[in-house]
Amino acid sequence: CHSECLGNCSQPDDPTKCVACRNFYLDGRCVETCPPPYYHFQDWRCVNFSFCQDLHHKCKNSRRQGCHQYVIHNNKCIPECPSGYTMNSSNLLCTPCLGPCPKVCHLLEGEKTIDSVTSAQELRGCTVINGSLIINIRGGNNLAAELEANLGLIEEISGYLKIRRSYALVSLSFFRKLRLIRGETLEIGNYSFYALDNQNLRQLWDWSKHNLTITQGKLFFHYNPKLCLSEIHKMEEVSGTKGRQERNDIALKTNGDQASCENELLKFSYIRTSFDKILLRWEPYWPPDFRDLLGFMLFYKEAPYQNVTEFDGQDACGSNSWTVVDIDPPLRSNDPKSQNHPGWLMRGLKPWTQYAIFVKTLVTFSDERRTYGAKSDIIYVQTDATNPSVPLDPISVSNSSSQIILKWKPPSDPNGNITHYLVFWERQAEDSELFELDYCLKGLKLPSRTWSPPFESEDSQKHNQSEYEDSAGECCSCPKTDSQILKELEESSFRKTFEDYLHNVVFVPRKT
């Protein structure tokens, strides 16, 4: 048989008469490798580009789960590009990614509803959504962080984005990388972005840091009482949809009607710091009717980097990364020049730590249904340095008659930039024990000054392991946590139920 035959053949030295091919099969003959313009397919066939392209389009058009959109890589027609490569849609070739590779997620039936953290986790790592997304989240724990972890990498949506009755959302900033909504599939009414009845939605994105392009379709905003109209108009300008909307697409009466839409800028007039305090004062603000001013709200939190936005980490279910302080308005003076500047002394802060701070007014709604208010920009203030805590785990070892090696770990709280350490030492008198000992005694162990690591005695271990207080009263049991108490109650309830079950099964009433 021919060298490319495997198993047997019907005619000697003829690659077209093989029972099976050793390498690849091409047009009725066995070959060692697939010549151009053919590609290896499933490690035994040679196919042309049209064959591989037909497989790709067949799966793409069917949208069946589990099928493969075949691509070409290293002269092979394979189910998908290997790690580190992405497909070129024009020629199906796998090309190296520039940075992290995109991950295209194809949605069944063309859309997916995100109504819980669990459903959001199914899209973790996706960068391109081939379909439409509907966000409908009523509640949950730590929602802002969970949504950002699972949806934060999405850069492109081919269909539309719909935010509907998501009472738990305060902001859409968890879509931190969303840059493009194509609108290839539109919501009824030709809408590519749809926001309806979101009672706590206050911000779409921080438009000073976020760009969003909507290729096709219109915007729809109705019944978002805490979303200011200025935020919607800003989205029109940034996304390129200005002029597409009709009169009733953006409701003037049901958007922002319960919001404090600040239209003035508060400026800080005085800032002073110490290692654990920050004193702030800002310019006074009074609405047209000074009785509408209820006070100020001061927001602050630790910020290692200057990239904080107002609604980071917030949701309507209680999660809030900001510390909020309510401040009463100052006494009002008739003389504008003698107006008191409101302020606040922030206490209990960490030394040498940068804080993000902003302040906003708290006002009631005027009778004319106009909203007044003022808010400052987010500023960054760093507390002063102070003395560091003591170095940890000092170790001293003498390696000769004239040297001592000293080692330690950095302090747990540096409280500033540590530039150097101060080492103090003092000579001590020799131990009298060394002169009084009889060095001729056998088995004498000389006193040693070398360091030995501390260890816990058996008594201390027994005390720590004991669940009861000892007789001397030195140790006591740790208080039980809520989960331990709940577990004990469940076990007790189970024992009672099981005992009742045994009584009912074992003891049967005697027939009379």
Results as ranks from 00 to 15, higher is better:
residue 104 V to P: 04
residue 104 V to Y: 06
residue 105 C to L: 01
residue 106 H to S: 09
residue 107 L to Y: 03
residue 107 L to K: 03
residue 108 L to H: 14
residue 109 E to A: 09
residue 113 T to W: 14
residue 113 T to E: 10
residue 114 I to D: 00
residue 115 D to K: 13
residue 116 S to P: 01
residue 118 T to E: 10
residue 118 T to K: 09
residue 119 S to V: 10
residue 119 S to K: 02
residue 119 S to Q: 03
residue 124 R to S: 10
residue 127 T to V: 04
residue 128 V to Y: 08
residue 130 N to G: 04
residue 133 L to E: 00
residue 133 L to A: 02
residue 134 I to G: 06
residue 134 I to M: 06
residue 135 I to F: 10
residue 136 N to I: 02
residue 136 N to R: 06
residue 137 I to S: 05
residue 138 R to I: 14
residue 139 G to Q: 14
residue 139 G to V: 15
residue 141 N to V: 13
residue 147 L to C: 03
residue 147 L to P: 01
residue 147 L to D: 00
residue 148 E to L: 06
residue 149 A to L: 08
residue 149 A to T: 13
residue 150 N to Y: 14
residue 150 N to D: 06
residue 155 E to P: 01
residue 155 E to M: 04
residue 156 E to Y: 06
residue 157 I to P: 00
residue 157 I to W: 00
residue 158 S to N: 06
residue 159 G to W: 01
residue 160 Y to K: 13
residue 162 K to V: 14
residue 164 R to P: 05
residue 166 S to D: 03
residue 166 S to A: 13
residue 167 Y to N: 13
residue 167 Y to F: 14
residue 167 Y to C: 13
residue 169 L to I: 12
residue 171 S to L: 01
residue 172 L to P: 02
residue 172 L to S: 02
residue 172 L to K: 00
residue 173 S to D: 10
residue 174 F to N: 02
residue 175 F to I: 13
residue 175 F to P: 00
residue 175 F to E: 00
residue 175 F to S: 00
residue 176 R to C: 07
residue 177 K to F: 06
residue 177 K to D: 15
residue 178 L to F: 03
residue 184 E to L: 11
residue 186 L to E: 07
residue 186 L to R: 12
residue 188 I to F: 10
residue 189 G to V: 13
residue 190 N to A: 14
residue 191 Y to V: 08
residue 191 Y to P: 05
residue 192 S to D: 01
residue 192 S to L: 00
residue 193 F to L: 11
residue 195 A to Y: 00
residue 195 A to R: 00
residue 198 N to K: 00
residue 198 N to E: 01
residue 199 Q to F: 14
residue 200 N to G: 03
residue 200 N to A: 06
residue 203 Q to K: 12
residue 203 Q to T: 12
residue 203 Q to F: 04
residue 204 L to G: 03
residue 204 L to C: 12
residue 205 W to H: 05
residue 206 D to S: 07
residue 206 D to H: 04
residue 207 W to K: 03
residue 207 W to N: 03
residue 208 S to I: 04
residue 208 S to T: 10
residue 211 N to W: 14
residue 212 L to D: 00
residue 215 T to L: 08
residue 215 T to W: 01
residue 215 T to R: 12
residue 217 G to S: 03
residue 218 K to M: 11
residue 219 L to H: 03
residue 220 F to D: 02
residue 220 F to L: 10
residue 221 F to M: 14
residue 227 L to W: 00
residue 228 C to L: 04
residue 229 L to Q: 13
residue 229 L to M: 05
residue 230 S to W: 05
residue 230 S to L: 04
residue 231 E to K: 04
residue 231 E to H: 13
residue 231 E to S: 12
residue 232 I to T: 12
residue 234 K to S: 11
residue 235 M to I: 10
residue 236 E to T: 14
residue 238 V to K: 14
residue 240 G to S: 01
residue 241 T to W: 08
residue 245 Q to T: 09
residue 246 E to C: 06
residue 246 E to I: 04
residue 247 R to H: 14
residue 247 R to P: 08
residue 247 R to K: 09
residue 247 R to E: 06
residue 247 R to L: 10
residue 247 R to D: 06
residue 248 N to V: 09
residue 249 D to R: 06
residue 249 D to A: 08
residue 249 D to Y: 12
residue 249 D to H: 02
residue 249 D to E: 15
residue 251 A to Y: 10
residue 252 L to D: 07
residue 253 K to I: 12
residue 253 K to C: 11
residue 253 K to V: 08
residue 253 K to W: 15
residue 254 T to C: 04
residue 254 T to L: 12
residue 254 T to E: 07
residue 255 N to T: 11
residue 255 N to E: 03
residue 255 N to S: 08
residue 256 G to F: 05
residue 258 Q to L: 13
residue 258 Q to N: 02
residue 259 A to K: 13
residue 260 S to R: 12
residue 261 C to G: 02
residue 262 E to F: 10
residue 263 N to A: 11
residue 264 E to C: 05
residue 266 L to A: 01
residue 266 L to K: 00
residue 266 L to Q: 02
residue 268 F to K: 00
residue 268 F to C: 02
residue 273 T to D: 01
residue 273 T to W: 15
residue 274 S to D: 14
residue 277 K to A: 13
residue 277 K to P: 00
residue 280 L to T: 09
residue 280 L to K: 00
residue 281 R to L: 07
residue 282 W to D: 00
residue 283 E to I: 05
residue 284 P to F: 12
residue 286 W to P: 10
residue 288 P to H: 06
residue 288 P to L: 07
residue 289 D to H: 06
residue 289 D to M: 03
residue 290 F to A: 09
residue 291 R to F: 06
residue 292 D to Y: 07
residue 292 D to V: 03
residue 293 L to Q: 13
residue 293 L to A: 07
residue 293 L to P: 07
residue 294 L to P: 10
residue 295 G to A: 14
residue 295 G to M: 15
residue 295 G to H: 10
residue 295 G to D: 03
residue 296 F to Q: 10
residue 298 L to K: 00
residue 299 F to L: 06
residue 300 Y to G: 00
residue 301 K to S: 05
residue 302 E to K: 09
residue 302 E to Q: 11
residue 303 A to K: 05
residue 303 A to F: 08
residue 304 P to V: 09
residue 309 T to F: 05
residue 311 F to Q: 11
residue 315 D to Y: 09
residue 316 A to S: 07
residue 316 A to F: 12
residue 317 C to V: 07
residue 317 C to M: 11
residue 318 G to V: 05
residue 321 S to T: 13
residue 322 W to V: 08
residue 323 T to D: 05
residue 323 T to L: 11
residue 324 V to Y: 12
residue 324 V to F: 13
residue 324 V to A: 14
residue 324 V to T: 10
residue 325 V to S: 06
residue 326 D to S: 04
residue 328 D to M: 08
residue 329 P to E: 08
residue 330 P to W: 03
residue 330 P to M: 05
residue 332 R to N: 06
residue 332 R to Q: 15
residue 333 S to D: 13
residue 334 N to V: 08
residue 335 D to Y: 15
residue 337 K to G: 08
residue 338 S to Q: 12
residue 338 S to A: 10
residue 339 Q to L: 13
residue 339 Q to W: 05
residue 339 Q to K: 13
residue 341 H to K: 08
residue 342 P to N: 06
residue 343 G to C: 09
residue 343 G to S: 07
residue 343 G to M: 13
residue 344 W to I: 03
residue 345 L to R: 03
residue 348 G to H: 07
residue 349 L to A: 04
residue 351 P to R: 05
residue 351 P to N: 03
residue 352 W to T: 13
residue 352 W to F: 08
residue 353 T to F: 05
residue 355 Y to F: 11
residue 355 Y to K: 01
residue 356 A to T: 02
residue 357 I to F: 01
residue 360 K to Q: 02
residue 360 K to R: 06
residue 366 S to H: 15
residue 366 S to R: 10
residue 367 D to N: 08
residue 367 D to T: 10
residue 368 E to R: 15
residue 368 E to T: 12
residue 368 E to K: 14
residue 369 R to A: 04
residue 369 R to S: 07
residue 370 R to T: 12
residue 371 T to P: 10
residue 372 Y to K: 10
residue 373 G to I: 04
residue 383 T to I: 01
residue 383 T to R: 00
residue 384 D to L: 12
residue 386 T to M: 10
residue 387 N to Y: 03
residue 387 N to R: 09
residue 388 P to R: 15
residue 388 P to N: 08
residue 391 P to V: 05
residue 391 P to N: 03
residue 392 L to D: 04
residue 394 P to R: 06
residue 394 P to K: 11
residue 395 I to P: 01
residue 397 V to I: 13
residue 398 S to M: 03
residue 398 S to N: 15
residue 404 I to A: 14
residue 405 I to G: 11
residue 405 I to W: 07
residue 406 L to F: 07
residue 407 K to W: 15
residue 411 P to S: 02
